[in-house]
Design a protein around this nucleic acid. Structure first.
Lengths: 221, 221
DNA sequence: TGTTTAAAATGAATGTCATTCAGTTTTGAA
DNA sequence: TTCAAAACTGAATGACATTCATTTTAAACA
């Protein structure tokens, strides 16, 4: 009973949810188009159909909104990747697919590029959103004997940050797509798998990602 | 005669040089202490003992000044590293030392952390400043048969960006120093050297870097 | 030495935001 | 229907980056 009371589902709660979603959505639209800096809070508020001050009922600052936007984008991608890799039987391939797809998204999509600007903030956000997936995949591949690394959690964390970091650098580094393939191979080598096998793994045909779910739209005033 | 005329060394030229240096110096002091965003152009101008408008005679924007600051810091480190590695005989060790030292600088020094914020800009700046060194070191190690990688320039560029990226992520990722050692080992594995040897390489005792040269000071009005 | 002029420097004024807050409106319970 | 609390609103505020009309400097020349 008390538990029910803790999560009221009244009209206020629903409206709050709508507003928050609408703001993240508007933030995504504006920020991913013009970049975080060039996006103004006014424009975002207009897009979300709320007053300028309302944004601050939900986010302490522009930066915090930007983080929420990035998190939504990243979490979304992580889920779409998982939908594909759930069908794989080789855990090493799961990891390879994830690494590569993240990098391709970060590199190929101008909207990601716009969002991946604040290094101090995205390393953290990306790790929070995608880290658990990457770590799980690495652990599975190791348990199955496909990867060999000296020791546990620290290595995993490092590996995950490497992916984040490389994505970052590659995103802003203006490298041709062919480099991604090579980078994936190298990251795989770093897991202790042999080079020949890493190359084979990275080259396996890859199923397409499921389509991006269009962001929730407001239903009207 | 004409050549001499092209590079006048009169008082104006010297003053311009002093001002530019003073601005980069002031920019470094202020930005590395409070972060790029929190640093104001006014404070930087005050520090450099020039009017607020003068900054714009030398840099098109705050961002451009920030880039100049980062470039000076990075180039400086690259030179200090080179002073040490010039005495090494094993080219693989040269590369390992460079990678590790860059990472340690980026991670351990709060001033670097303050400067390494704009991902869209530093990947480029870092590559410009340190890339040539890293590439040269990689090539030497490969020519000497220490590293084995499938093929040339693209791989080098990718490797360099990986270092940049990992530095970035590690800098903002709040990882313990022990992770750096491990990361260096993994990056070495990615060069095709064996894991056992990578571990040995990363663990070799390392000579200290030469002291940082204090930035040029203004000599007075 | 005095004159001239183009390059540099100056700092007050401008315009653009992020953020705040005093005043309204909405909500849900009584 | 009434009321207090919660949300919303958008005009006002304050901080800056950047601009530009003036002033200052310095080097070439007389």
């Amino acid at each position: 009973m008390d538990l029910l009371r803790e999560k009221p589902k009244g009209r206020v709660a629903q409206r709050q949810l709508r507003n928050r979603e609408a703001l993240v959505d508007a933030g995504y639209r504006v920020m991913s188009e013009k970049g975080i800096d060039a996006a103004t809070m006014q424009e975002i508020a207009d897009f979300a159909d709320v007053g300028a001050g309302t944004v601050y009922n939900y986010f302490k600052s522009k930066d915090e909104l930007a983080i929420a936007v990035m998190e939504r984008v990243m979490h979304n991608l992580a889920l779409r990747i998982e939908a594909v890799t759930d069908t794989f039987s080789d855990p090493a391939q799961v990891y390879a697919f994830g690494v590569r797809t993240v990098m391709e998204a970060a590199t190929g999509d101008i909207r990601w590029k716009q969002l991946l600007n604040r290094a101090e903030v995205i390393a953290d956000a990306m790790f929070r959103c995608m880290g658990p997936f990457a770590i799980r995949d690495l652990e599975n591949a190791t348990k199955a004997g496909r990867f060999k690394v000296a020791d546990g959690p620290l290595t995993w964390k490092m590996a995950t940050y490497s992916i984040v970091g490389v994505s970052l650098a590659v995103t802003h580094g203006d490298l041709p797509p062919s480099v991604i393939q090579e980078t994936v191979v190298r990251l795989l080598c770093a897991t202790g798998i042999g080079e020949a096998e890493a190359i084979e793994l990275a080259a396996r045909p890859r199923p397409a990602l499921p389509k991006e779910r269009p962001p929730a739209r407001r239903t009207g005033a």
